[in-house]
Design a protein around this nucleic acid. Structure first.
Length: 877
RNA sequence: GGCCCCGUGGCGAAAUUGGUAGACGCACCGAACUUAAAAUUCGGAGCCCUCGAGGCGUGCCGGUUCGAGCCCGGCCGGGGCCACCA
């Protein structure tokens, strides 16, 4: 009964059609079973899926199918992060409308994903560029506006003068726009901000509760939020030195410090070039103005920071030390002070801050040690080339001398809080965050319009709710740079909703990160017309039980979503804090690179690998010429080391592709795509098919005999051991381990089956039948089409996709006799077989009786025997 | 500069979380089947040697322990994130 080879090209579309027909993966909100929400980060519709998608969605699909089998009502939806710049770039390059380009790509990619056989509920599909989606986003913007969560303020941005748009920091390369190549300018623009900083403390604290998130991601977010505790201290300005034109109220200079303990080591003050006091001084000092301009020009984005010299300009002003009216400090403007952090001003303590020390050495400002290391002599300790930032006790600090750093911080805060300057306390305790508000204005067309109207008389007026969605106009052109919305008078010019006078729409659109900050909530009830969410459904499904995506979103997308969920809670759209209970960040798919003799990159499809004299060699398939094998890199068009999933799905089928990206590497690590590995996966597809078709099983109607022979029992034990192991591996998202365990079961089955094709004894036959059924079910989450086909061959009812996960017979997991390794002085010398419940004394006796053990002891007295039940015996002699 | 992660056969890796290191796969070697190849099946394989009931072995050095891939300290190498954050 030789079976035909399994043909995925025939089988896969058939089962996909069957699942669609039976609505197998349609999820109903009124299903009473416990809920489980699996979500993979939705794709940007760039044109075609890539291997990263295949890996991401294969993982999510394993979880989704496994949880379905375990009896959960699983929500596993898919959508499109469909707004963004590539659509506009395509419009400019290919004269195709962004909308048309985007929807065409969605159609292509939907087809590709469907050919992967994913257990998705396509009835819940959403695209963020669809007015039925962004309508609600606009409504929520208005909600946030009313709730005080939106701000409008000026901020410095990277401005590309050629493309006439704002660029994100990542889009500025060596000070030039990534598209236009034009020198980027720093511009002050009035922009919309979402007040994520209102939730700084909460977003930080709640990280502790995200136990099923990778520590790495939590740490990255913690650092990004960047909480620091310190003191705001006001230094009086020495009025004799204050230049004219400094506003009379600016009698003091406020700084933020985390090291108030080092106040007696202060040598200078430094201001950001944009600090109001610096600007006022610059107004009367052309040289200072030129210096500040120079600082601005260099900018802070580039990595030139590493090499940038610490530069300062002495304003001539002096600030009075808070603990000594006779002690004044020079006030510099310095290029390394950021206006955005703290107050844009610092006091410099060269002794205990390396940057301050560098600055002080350059301008000869001195350095006094005020913290003495525990092992140093306070009388002689001084600062050399390195600032001292470690623990110690205070010196040279008057009333602080002898205190620890913590005690000194407290003492300084306590005293300065009591003192006043101009009627207000000199110092206040303050928690500072690195996190900034989220600027969402983009000068682009292909994004969600910000629903406000600008009226000369009334100012900023929200678009009336009944006018939503503010839809993007479709009659636009990309022949000129800049935002087409700006050049579209019939769209832009509208009457003011308040006074009826001439007004114009906001032409900025929202950052696309806004779109992806709530899509997971929309999936819970995606066709709701009047509200973004039904809070009952959102609360019922969320938080997402398992979210899977790339580590590149560790900060922005995941932090924005955490903020957005809280903002939505504030506005009554749902009632929870955290969107994602479990987060998994998967690794990339990487590939070798190839170069021909001319140094040109060669695509993997044009390369043939051979082993010549035990060495891997590559040749060009067309010319036959040798090709150099280069390093393994992330798949990229520029290095041409890209494998098109479509090609793989075509030649090996979806099951083999899925199986391969799940095997080998642990899912959080990069997986190397190799032709051999893909073929290996395909071989396993065929092997399972052969096992199911060709393993002789005897009469299918025969009942399993009461007593099993050794070989039949071994098969049953292997089956249930594998079942337990695979279950644990999938629960832990350790798909590579699950794959390995499945191989072991396959090996056990082929090892136990009669080699000559003869009919096995009834006990073995029924054990093998059970083993094959279990194998098919274990394989089903990963290779669903093959599994359905095999399920039918085995004569089982219905779809394996609907079948309940097999129950483990725990009795089969425990052995009556176990083999224990015996060590002598930590080196393994023997194995002994003992009863599972053998007592310590019996085990010790058996161990000592073994001749290998006796020989290793060499007649020395046995000092101690350690018996670890079920594990090991160690004889210490 | 700060913070963090990772180093195990030729390769990807596994190791019940302190208890037999190298499961499983890829590549490789041998055998069977075949006119031949592919496919398939069976078998081999960490390294070293004097081939033994042998020695060595999880980047390197040291420590804790009956016992360390796993814990602690210090190096070396690779990678990531943030980056003048006061």
């Amino acid at each position: 009964m030789k079976a035909e080879r399994y043909n995925p090209k025939d089988s896969e579309p058939r089962w996909q059609a069957e699942w669609a027909r039976a609505e197998t993966f349609r999820t109903r909100n009124d299903d009473p079973r416990p809920r489980y929400y699996v979500l993979e980060m939705f794709p940007y519709p760039s044109g075609r899926i890539h291997m990263g998608h295949v890996r991401n969605y294969a993982m999510g699909d394993v979880v989704a199918r496994y949880k379905r089998a375990r009896g959960f009502n699983v929500l596993h939806p898919m959508g499109w992060d469909a707004f963004g710049m590539p659509a506009e770039n395509a419009a400019m390059e290919n004269k195709v409308h962004p909308k048309e380009w985007t929807y065409r790509n969605i159609a292509t990619m939907r087809g590709q994903l469907q050919s992967m056989g994913l257990s998705l509920d396509w009835s819940r599909e959403i695209a963020t560029c669809d007015p039925s989606y962004y309508k609600h986003q606009q409504a929520m913007f208005l909600d946030f506006l009313e709730a005080g969560l939106v701000d409008r303020k000026t901020a410095k941005v990277n401005w590309d003068p050629v493309d006439q748009t704002v660029l994100a920091n990542e889009q500025v390369i060596d000070g030039r726009g990534w598209r236009s190549g034009a020198l980027v300018e720093q511009r002050e623009l009035t922009q919309w901000f979402l007040k994520i900083t209102d939730y700084s403390e909460e977003l930080l604290q709640a990280l502790d509760g995200l136990e099923r998130w990778p520590d790495k991601v939590r740490l990255m977010q913690r650092n990004w939020i960047g909480r620091s505790e310190g003191l705001m201290v006001r230094f009086a300005l020495d009025q004799a030195t204050a230049p004219e034109g400094v506003p009379s109220h600016a009698t003091d200079l406020e700084i933020f410090t985390t090291r108030p303990d080092t106040l007696f080591g202060a040598k200078f003050m430094a201001l950001a070039p944009d600090h109001p006091l610096a600007k006022a001084a610059a107004a009367r000092d052309p040289k200072l103005a030129a210096f500040a301009e120079e600082c601005r020009r260099v900018g802070t984005s580039a990595e030139a920071i590493e090499t940038a010299e610490k530069l300062g300009y002495d304003t001539g002003m002096r600030a009075v030390h808070p603990f000594d009216p006779s002690w004044t400090l020079p006030v510099y403007v310095a290029n390394f002070i950021l206006m955005e952090y703290g107050t844009g001003a610092i006091f410099g303590c060269p002794g205990h801050d390396q940057r301050d020390l560098d600055f002080a050495r350059k301008y000869d400002l001195g350095a006094t040690a005020v913290v003495c290391p525990p092992d140093a002599d306070p009388a002689t300790f001084s600062i050399g080339d390195d600032a001292y930032v470690g623990e110690g006790r205070l010196i040279n600090s008057r009333f602080l001398d002898g205190l620890s750093i913590e005690e000194a911080k407290e003492a300084v805060a306590a005293r300065l809080e009591q003192e006043t300057l101009g009627g207000r306390p000199v110092a206040t305790r303050k928690v500072n965050f690195r996190l900034r508000d989220w600027g969402i204005s983009r000068q682009r067309y292909w994004g969600c319009p910000i629903p406000v109207i600008h009226c000369d008389a009334c100012g900023v007026v929200p678009a009336p709710r009944e006018s939503l969605p503010v839809e993007l106009p479709e009659d636009i052109g990309f022949d000129k740079p800049g935002n087409p919305l700006d050049r579209h008078p019939t769209w832009r010019d509208v009457p003011c909703p308040r006074c009826g006078g001439a007004a114009r729409r906001e032409t900025d659109t929202m950052d696309t990160f806004v779109d992806s900050s709530w899509y997971f909530a929309r999936f819970t009830d995606p066709h709701l017309a009047d509200r973004p969410t039904d809070p009952k459904e959102a609360d019922g499904w969320l938080p997402v039980d398992q979210y899977i995506g790339g580590i590149e979103h560790a900060i922005l997308h995941l932090l924005y979503s955490r903020f957005f969920t809280r903002a939505m809670r504030t506005c009554g759209h749902l009632n929870l804090d955290e969107p994602f209970r479990g987060l998994f960040t998967q690794g990339m798919v990487v590939h070798e690179t190839y170069k021909d003799s001319g140094g040109r990159w060669v695509m993997p499809v044009d390369v043939r690998i051979e082993t010549v004299e035990g060495e891997r060699r590559a040749f060009h398939v067309k010319t036959g010429e040798p090709v150099a094998i280069g390093s393994i890199e992330k798949m990229s068009k520029s290095k041409k080391n890209v494998i098109d999933p479509e090609h793989i799905l075509d030649s090996f089928g979806a099951d083999a592709a899925r199986w391969f990206v799940l095997s080998d590497s642990p899912p959080e690590r990069d997986v190397i795509w190799t032709e051999e590995g893909a073929q290996g996966a395909y071989r396993f597809v065929q092997r399972v098919w052969r096992l199911v078709n060709e393993t002789p099983l005897g009469d299918p109607a025969a009942a399993r005999p009461e007593t099993l022979g050794d070989d039949a029992l071994a098969v049953r034990k292997a089956t249930h051991r594998t079942l337990a192991a695979v279950e644990e591996a999938i629960e832990g998202l350790r798909f590579n381990v699950a794959v390995a365990k499945i191989y072991e079961l396959a090996n056990a089955i082929s090892g136990a089956a009669p080699k000559d094709g003869s009919t096995p004894a009834p006990d073995l036959g029924s054990s093998l039948r059970e083993a094959l059924g279990t194998l098919v079910q274990l394989v089903a989450p990963m290779m669903p089409h093959l599994a359905e086909e095999c399920w039918r061959v085995l004569g089982r009812d219905g779809l394996v996709a609907d079948a309940a996960w097999p129950a483990i017979e725990r009795d089969l997991l425990v052995e009556d006799t176990i083999v224990l390794p015996v060590q002598v002085n930590g080196k393994k010398r023997a194995d002994i077989a003992v009863a599972r419940d053998a007592g310590t004394q019996a085990i010790e006796a058996a161990a000592l009786a073994h001749e290998n053990v006796q020989r290793a002891i060499e007649g020395r007295p046995v000092r101690k025997i350690i018996v670890v039940p079920q594990r090991i015996v160690n004889v210490v002699a």
